[in-house]
Design a protein around this nucleic acid. Structure first.
Lengths: 200, 200
DNA sequence: GCCTACCTACACAGGTCTGTGTACCTATTT
DNA sequence: AAATAGGTACACAGACCTGTGTAGGTAGGC
């Protein structure tokens, strides 16, 4: 019955479905049978493309790990835009938190492959912020970048539980304050005089 | 063989062990057999105290939901102390993130009992911050309380992945800036003049 | 026409999971 | 002494899990 030409690369198709199911329902909650059935292939075919479920899990996370594409927009706009796009993603009903955090929470800290990729992802996001802050001339770009990822991950965790996109706006408001305090002129009516708070 | 006097209330003992295993290894990863074996009781006994694993999960989360005990310390000290105690907990090797966030991540957003208690917990923490901020005379106590819980949850998520207690310090530093911006005099050498940043 | 690659269907091994059924044992209370 | 409460051991039902084995079908390239 319609042997499915297998054109759009079977491996991609498997990953696409696995991604959706793993992300929405949890990794342990989804069996390989379920994935194969959802695609309409036999379990044997799936195991011909991935040697084990663990390999599929790793591939799932690796596929989620896409570097943010470089943008021509001004750095500040990019930074604050992060929170706007977070808010949009929160509003989508298929948002279920950060797949990397979720995977570590679910699989435990002993799962080294999963943890390694999760750490790499988190660090790459932090570095993305840091580089933009450097462009803005922020002195402690490292520290501020860390604080910004805290706001991002905090709003993600809160939204996962509460399902409230306003968390992204709260995070953005906090980010604006932190940026202003670091001497960045945020477009807010010039209310932003450099009055650094010594944080320790 | 030593029928275990069952004095310290069997139910508590079950919950205590279930808590440790659920929290450290994940809820789905731990079977009731494992819990019973760890306590040294038969599975039958466990099921005589809890009608199902779901009930045990709910009891586990309910037990984690302890209201912060009222303190005589000044409000600002309580707020900032939160981050210090977070740092201490991060440093402990048995810290594995927020049990409520982890449970929602693992069990899916469809599990209503679990989600409800997670939401209640998060909101209670936010209100705790808010009440302290009101005592400090902060105008937008609601908004700032939300921002503070973002920092708390952000640092928890980051520490879960990276295992880096410094995340708590970064969150504290950000909190200090946010508090100062809201007009709270933070004990930092008077570098804290009231120069509100309009956040929108 | 045939070979190769890839798919199918399907059974099954061996494990784990939740939850129950049954019969017995051992304190404490009455 | 007897009844009751709460524990034990242990088997088992029924579901689901990962992973494999086997035999056959079908399309494209040589």
């Amino acid at each position: 019955m319609a042997p499915l030409p297998a054109k759009p690369d079977m491996k991609d198709r498997i990953l696409e479905i696995a991604d959706r199911l793993f992300y929405l329902q949890g990794i342990r909650a989804v069996g390989v049978d379920t994935i194969a059935a959802e695609i309409g292939i036999s379990k044997r075919t799936l195991y011909n493309h991935f040697p084990s479920k663990d390999a599929l899990i790793s591939a799932y996370l690796a596929r989620r790990f896409v570097a943010p594409r470089p943008s021509e927009k001004p750095p500040l706009e990019q930074i604050l835009g992060t929170f706007d796009s977070l808010e949009r993603r929160f509003a989508a009903k298929d948002f279920r938190g950060c797949p990397f955090v979720n995977a570590v929470a679910e699989l435990g800290s002993e799962d080294q492959p999963v943890r390694k990729i999760a750490i790499a992802f988190k660090e790459s996001r932090r570095l993305w912020f840091r580089d933009l802050l450097v462009q803005l001339g922020v002195a402690d770009a490292e520290g501020l970048a860390t604080q910004l990822v805290l706001l991002v991950d905090g709003s993600i965790a809160q939204d996962l539980v509460r399902n409230d996109p306003a968390m992204a706006r709260a995070a953005k408001a906090a980010a604006v304050v932190l940026l202003a305090n670091a001497g960045v002129r945020v477009g807010d009516g010039g209310a932003t005089q450099k009055s650094q708070v010594k944080t320790r």
